[in-house]
Simulated assay, not measured.
Amino acid sequence: MAGAEALRLDARRPVAERLIELAAPAAVYLGVRLVGLVMLAIMAARDGTDVLTRLSTWDGAWLRAIAEHGYDVPDDMLDLFGHHTPTTALCFFPGYPAAVAAVGTVTGGDLVIAGLVVSLVSGIAAAYALARLGELVPGGSRQAGLVLVGLFAATPMAVVLSMTYTEAMFCAFAAWALVGVLRRQWLLAGLCAAGAGLVRPTASSLVAAVALAALVAVLGGGAGWRPWAGAVLSTTGILGYLGYVALQTGSPTGWFAIQQAGWASSLDGGGATARYAVEVLFGGDKIFDVLTLVAILGTAALLVIGVKMRVPWPLLVYGALVLVTVWGTDGVMSSKLRLLVPAFTLLLPPAIALGRRSTGTAVAVVAAAAVASAWFGGYALTIWPYGI
């Protein structure tokens, strides 16, 4: 009866008010990202290039090539060491390129525009899931959810959410999977985790969190068959693709071998990150490197705060595993800031705190973060000379 009464009261509100509330997550996300794109346009113009070129560089070129040619990409597509092999492209997961290829049929074959459209739609989808997460967590609220959206769109390397990169699509799947976990909608959680598993290897962290939460639900009793189904579904995307690469390479560890040989990326227990931290602390003079180290340390602090604030444990498990993967992996150090973007659950503590403050304070903080992120994104794409 209470739910029916709430629906009747909601129906009596002015249509404009309901539409504004409905559009709020998208408006916050798009507003913050627009600030970033305007800043990038200004910095690209000073650099003598254009926004579209900057938004489709680095890994974006690989993903577009896969969207156009499948995994048989042109021979001039080279790995980190300037090599090309028949399996080089297999290190990139197929979900994003497949979506770009599909949208490309509508954009007249323009895969840059198609990639940007996929990222835009994915980012908006992620915004609605994050807004819901901010409402569902203990101490959360509508304002906390919107602040979470704003902070997510204003992380240091949030520019990748507007690029022909996989982060926006992955975060959309991951955020909705975690909404499914909190609402005990196990099929939603499993399907979204499966989708994430076709987009990025970061899905291993998400699958672990979803499967563990489902296991706890089963052990708690009375959950039925859905947690089992959700847990099994969650593994199908990432295991399916790793299995495909294993068949193509003839090795069960084929994907990991490609990553190591072509991109110098492998789990090393954090040794490379520790050496990088020492180098930056005692000899670093690059803004990018310094901010990367600050972000790495900051995420550790946010994780501790999240534990103290009793953020739901599946969200903490997911965030912690993303951090462990980023900290514990060798490879291109300048990509670590980008790899931290999916750790959005760590932004819940400041979002909850700002949700309790005045609207003006929350807006001011998000606006300041948006401007800082906008400048840094422009710096990363127009001044910083290395890949992200």
Rank of each mutant, 00 (worst) to 15 (best):
L37H: 03
L37A: 03
L37Y: 02
L37Q: 01
V38K: 02
V38M: 00
M39V: 14
L40A: 05
L40W: 00
A41C: 10
A41W: 08
A41L: 14
A41I: 02
A41P: 02
A41M: 09
I42K: 05
I42Q: 09
I42H: 01
I42E: 10
I42F: 11
I42V: 15
M43Y: 05
M43H: 02
M43W: 06
A44R: 09
A44W: 01
A44Y: 03
A44P: 07
A44K: 02
A45T: 09
A45H: 04
R46N: 11
R46K: 13
R46T: 05
D47L: 06
D47N: 14
D47E: 14
G48K: 00
G48W: 01
T49F: 03
T49V: 12
T49L: 07
T49G: 13
T49Q: 03
T49D: 07
D50H: 12
D50Q: 08
D50A: 12
D50S: 15
D50F: 05
D50P: 03
V51Y: 05
V51T: 14
L52E: 08
L52R: 13
T53R: 12
T53M: 03
T53I: 00
T53V: 04
R54G: 03
R54Y: 03
L55S: 08
L55R: 05
S56N: 14
S56C: 13
S56P: 01
S56E: 04
T57Y: 03
T57E: 14
W58C: 07
W58V: 13
W58I: 11
W58R: 09
W58L: 06
D59C: 12
D59I: 08
D59E: 11
G60V: 02
G60K: 01
G60D: 03
G60H: 04
G60E: 09
A61N: 05
A61K: 11
A61H: 05
A61I: 14
W62M: 13
W62I: 02
W62V: 09
L63H: 14
L63C: 07
L63I: 15
L63Y: 11
L63V: 13
R64N: 05
R64A: 11
R64T: 08
A65N: 03
A65H: 00
A65I: 02
A65M: 04
A65S: 14
A65Q: 01
I66G: 04
I66Q: 04
A67E: 02
A67V: 06
A67F: 04
E68K: 09
E68H: 13
H69K: 02
H69S: 12
H69G: 08
H69Y: 15
G70V: 08
G70S: 07
G70L: 09
G70E: 08
Y71H: 10
Y71L: 15
Y71K: 11
Y71R: 09
Y71N: 12
D72V: 09
D72G: 11
D72I: 02
V73E: 11
P74G: 13
P74M: 10
P74F: 07
P74V: 10
P74L: 13
D76V: 10
D76Y: 15
M77Q: 15
L78H: 09
L78A: 12
L78S: 10
L78T: 10
L78Q: 13
D79A: 14
D79E: 12
